[in-house]
Amino acid sequence: MTPRDLLPIAGFAAAAALLPLFVTAGTWLNFMIFTLIICLAAQGWNILGGFGGQYSFGHAAFFGTAAYGTAILQLRYGVNPYPAFAAGIAAAAAVGWIIGVLAFRSGLRGSYFALVTLAFAEVFRVLANSAEVTGGAAGLLIKLDVRPENFQFESRANFYWIALALVTGALVLTRWLERSRLGAQLVAVRENESAARALGVDALSVKLSAITLSGAVTGAAGGLYAQYFLYLDANIAYGTWISVEALLAPIIGGAGTVFGPVLGGIILHSLAEFTKTLVGRIPGVDLVIFGALLILVVRFPPRDIPGLLKRWRR
């Protein structure tokens, strides 16, 4: 990784950091923070799905594990929220590794892998919905105690900057991955697993590293969510909504690229917000928009757009 590799990331972070100086309305900051949380979840998905070609439909498993981890350690064990957040991320990474061992050891790929991840997330959701430690169907409320040392802030802008710092960290991590041996081997496994193995790539260990990293990053989004909204239930933490958004954003913005998930996350949430103001809060209308967008992106991959335009002009 050279300084030039990091320049676009620094540029993005600097520009985004200035936004709260201009945008001060609470609803807008709220929107921006939520978008950053989704971007972070999507960046996690992108490591495994975009670079590794292993499409997970169950990233909620990581998001929810870290979210519950962060909340439960505070509520039940009185742990300070910052170490609780770190432990939540570690737990999500561990869940990633375990799912990886179970799925990749038995050679699951493609839609089988997607289904298994979906099944894990659903099992977690059902368990969290009934277990006592997760507050069952009533969910968990983190006690309001606004102090910076308690990971709660008077001003939303502070939270925005923390979310931005995490997204920036994930951008740097992704750039490092792109330039590293692990990244090259991961992409090789995505493109052709047999060929990669013939060149000395330990496909299983590469995929395990990817799903562990992926789980940690998406977990960070979950922990952040818990700490920002201070409320969790099973349908939020382990719900399909987050699995879907985590995979849609990178696919729309460019899977396997450094900025793809962030770009896609912003597009996705701007569109959702825009339609909400346009047609009101019809339940599920954002899913319709997401679906239409997905079809468009699959039909006309963004990298083909220059070619399409050329054909059009003729």
């Binding site: 992409v187 090789a188 493109e191 052709n192 047999s194 013939a198 060149l199 000395g200």
Partner: peptide, 16 residues
Amino acid sequence: VQPFAGLSVRENIAVG
């Protein structure tokens, strides 16, 4: 032949 189809020739060889 088993190329890494989406990658450049340089990147293909670099995997090795």
